[in-house]
Amino acid sequence: MMADGAQKMKKGAHARILGASIFRNIVCIFLCFLSLIPFWIMLVNATRSSTDIQMAFSLIPSTHIWENFQKLLYQANENVPLYRYMINSLVIAGFSTVLSVYFSTATAYGVTVYRFKGSQFAWAFIMAIMMIPTQVSSIGFFRFMYNLGLSNNFIPLIIPAIAAPATVFFMRQYMLSALPLEIIDAARIDGSGEFKTFNTIAVPLMKPAVATQAIFVFIASWNNFYTPSMLLSSQSLYTLPMFVQLMRGERFRSDYGIIYVGLVITILPIFIVYFALSKYIIAGVALGGVKE
């Protein structure tokens, strides 16, 4: 009798778990659908002719992608060739990434490995400035760069990447667990100079953290619209997000097919990077979030 009741309860619980599982999966599938559908519509409309797009809604791809692409090139290349924006974005994001990751590792190394006067303060300071967004100082930043004659230049978009408090924070967290100080001492005994030790021993040991942060810095720089759109005025220096802004202009507005193809082109590189590295990206977000 008792056993029967228990079994019934077990069965009930089992059914409840199954029900919950189905319900939760349905919700999650819906959310995945929600994440994808705008991009799907974008892809589909990139393959449709402008008149089709205006006629009716569709989720089935058509065959006009090449035509749209040609038209986009024709429209966009009037002043500056389209690939130029991509190269500009690539140059800025590439240099920013290298500088940011290297110097953030160096800064984290400096405050972790050495006990010098003010090392505690330096660390507290880096933590404190992590909260200050760049936007609040942008007016002064612009004027200062303008006075230096750097307003139409990539330098103010690349060099500031050296001081990235959030990257330093991540690097230090990782360093505490992955870089035993004994190794550095051993290197010293072997007569390795401090900078050589850093470059040949510390940086290779930090590789996983360096890779994770490189992805994040690159994506953030690639996506940055705020600072480039404030500083750059000559169109040959525009970045990809600024090209996106151009596409809203009169010249493109009449032809939807072109806009959608243009959007696809700006998204495609990031899509490829994301689906190739999504595992590491999500692991990196999870790590970065668990801050004390």
Binding site: C32, V244, I259, S278, I281
Partner: peptide, 20 residues
């Protein structure tokens, strides 16, 4: 992977996409 994806796409592009 799916629900995180919009986070890394260029905000400018997403904005113009939603505008369209």
């Amino acid at each position: 992977i799916m629900t995180f994806m919009p986070n890394i796409i260029t905000a400018a592009t997403i904005s113009v996409l939603f505008y369209s």
